[in-house]
Design a protein around this nucleic acid. Structure first.
Length: 540
RNA sequence: GGCGGCAUGGCCAAGUGGUAAGGCAGAGGAUUGCAAAUCCUUUACCCCCAGUUCGAAUCUGGGUGCCGCCUCCA
């Protein structure tokens, strides 16, 4: 079993072999911090987070890789300047604000922070040095305060995106700025350094004051943080051309060595068949979605149910399906801690495959095979669901006050394996207030069972009516949650109502019984009638 | 015009030569006075045509449809 990854360079799945044994150097293209992140960003970083977690997994065949993960912030750019001008802020204020928001959003999605997150404005020395080097080597030329990369001088330009410059229709999109073109030797030459324009922030350089172009940032940061050749370079498929192509040209012209051995690209998030993007205005921000009651793990599940290279259509229905699916998975995952006292299972640890019974071992192997096969998270999730099924059933029985049997107790390994494998995908039980359960039959539930999490997303699920909104609206999400107010009733008061209802039922006064049930429901109290006339209640 | 990708049940989505994972929804059943919740069971021959093969969703050719990139973009 070896990890195979689709390398955009070869358009084929290749066996992954790191440059240095058991160590992996990864660079991931980060965001331009002019606005909040949307679901497209969420998908990208969730998927790469899973790659990182998988490589770092101790259960990885051959042992965990030691991963160094670098991701940048582009904090100087036209769009940031525009935004700053619109809002009457300094460029730094805009970028700082959005960097903070980035961390909040990604932390919420349980995305591990990179080992290093360089910012363009803090790497200017490296950028200038790299440009100077390219100029010395004849790969770049300056013109009126700008510096351009000479595309035609770089053999192999186009190898990542499969483009042959001579076959490209120049300006196929009909968008060229004549002024800049006049300074370029070739239409595909791109700016390494842009001469300062009046009123814009600028930095000194041998070519005059100005600021770096976008592509050169990444080349300089990779070199500074990780060296000439890295193992894996990550990014969205929309970055293949021109960004990554240019990055390769710059870095390889300077070092004479390959920039990255493996180039991985994630597919886009679509809305109604179109790419979600800022410019189309059809985006939903991560925080808007989370604020609408969709849990972070639901979003993770939604993303991971598709293969990372394929486009993923964002729909309300898909999100609801993920929410319901997560509810079950989550109940199983939370089992050990939720029912700690009843089960006495120890906190999760890495399970030695040798200690697993055959059926669990087989599941674990299939999980690993799926992940090894170009991160087939959809198939891997299938194994997780299989692992979870009996645990979910157990969790639901315990939830309504049943006591675990000896056979239930024996499920400990299954649960530990589930927690471990789910962790590889970054899936973990939601942090939410758990609520004690009370049974009206005193003899039954000495065990303080707790309510399964994911109340938020299931509530979002039930309010399905909101239609997908047109592009002008920033948020296309389930309606806000808040369907049930937290109950102000005391346990004793609830008990009393449950007893009343029981009496009404005994008297076959079902109308009263049902209205009592409705009354409690309005207070967020769920009644579960179990066989044998036993009713338990749960706070919602 | 160039480059790349996709097309699997009601929806989403795995599956690259041997007779279709999983999730959601639906249906049936158990439980219930009813409901909810929960549990069990259950639903496909894979866009079209022509080939290769003992055998194809999976390979080849053609067609149709859709998407991404060629401009900032995860």
């Amino acid at each position: 079993m070896t990890l195979r990854l689709t390398n955009t360079l070869s358009r084929a799945k290749e066996v992954f072999t790191p440059l240095v044994d058991r160590r992996v150097a990864i660079y991931c293209c980060g965001v331009t911090v002019y606005d909040l992140c949307h679901l497209g960003h969420a998908r990208s970083y969730i998927v790469w987070d899973v790659l990182r977690r998988y490589l770092s997994w101790p259960g990885q065949s051959g042992g965990a890789y030691q991963v160094t993960f670098v991701q940048n912030f582009t904090d100087i750019d036209d769009k940031i300047l525009n935004r700053a001008a619109e809002q009457g802020l300094a460029m730094e204020e805009v970028s700082e604000r959005n960097i903070m928001a980035y961390f909040q959003d990604m932390d919420a999605l349980n995305i591990l922070r990179a080992d290093s997150m360089p910012r363009a404005t803090a790497c200017l020395d490296g950028i200038r040095a790299l440009i100077a080097e390219l100029e010395h080597k004849g790969a770049a030329y300056s013109a009126d305060g700008d510096v351009y990369f000479a595309v035609m001088k770089q053999a192999g330009y186009g190898k990542l995106s499969g483009r042959d410059l001579s076959e490209q229709q120049e300006g196929a999109s009909g968008r060229t700025t004549g002024e800049e073109d006049a300074r370029k030797h070739h239409p595909f030459d791109f700016a390494l350094w842009k001469g300062a324009k009046p009123g814009e922030p600028s930095y000194p350089s041998p070519w005059g004051p100005g600021r770096p172009g976008w592509h050169i940032e990444c080349s300089a940061m990779v070199r500074q943080e990780l060296g000439d050749t890295i193992d894996i370079h990550l990014g969205g498929a929309d970055l293949i051309f021109p960004h990554h192509e240019n990055e390769i040209a710059q870095s390889e012209a300077a070092s004479g060595k390959p920039l990255a051995r493996y180039w991985l690209h994630n597919g886009m998030v679509n809305v109604g068949g179109e790419k979600m993007s800022k410019s189309l205005g059809n985006f939903t921000t991560i925080r808007a979605l989370l604020a609408s009651g969709v849990s972070p793990m639901t979003l993770r599940l939604f993303v991971l149910q598709a293969h990372y290279r394929k486009p993923l259509d964002f729909t309300l229905e898909g999100l609801e399906a993920a929410a319901t699916g997560w509810k079950g998975l989550s109940a199983a995952l939370a089992l050990g801690s939720t029912h700690q006292a009843a089960l006495g299972w120890s906190e999760h640890q890495v399970v030695a495959p040798a200690s697993l019974p055959e059926d669990l071992k087989a599941i674990r192997e299939r999980f690993q095979e799926a992940m090894d096969d170009d991160l087939n998270t959809a198939a891997a999730l299938g194994e997780l669901f299989e692992l979870a099924r009996p645990l979910r059933a157990l969790a639901n029985r315990l939830r309504i006050g049943d006591l675990p049997s000896a056979a239930d107790q024996a499920q400990s390994l299954r649960w530990q394996l589930l927690v471990e494998l789910a962790g590889v995908l970054g899936l973990q039980p939601d942090q939410s207030g758990s609520t004690p359960l009370s049974g009206s039959n005193p003899g039954r539930s000495a065990e303080p069972a707790r309510l399964a999490p994911e109340t938020a997303a299931s509530a979002a699920t039930s309010s399905a009516a909101t239609p997908a909104t047109p592009a002008t609206t920033a948020v296309a999400t389930p309606a806000a949650v808040a369907s049930v107010a937290p109950s102000g009733l005391s346990d004793a008061a609830i008990e009393a109502l449950v007893v009343q209802r029981k009496a009404a039922k005994a008297a076959r006064d079902f109308a009263s019984a049902d209205s009592l049930r409705a009354e409690l429901k309005a207070q967020g109290i769920e009644l579960v009638d179990k066989p044998g006339g036993v009713t338990v209640w749960l706070r919602g």
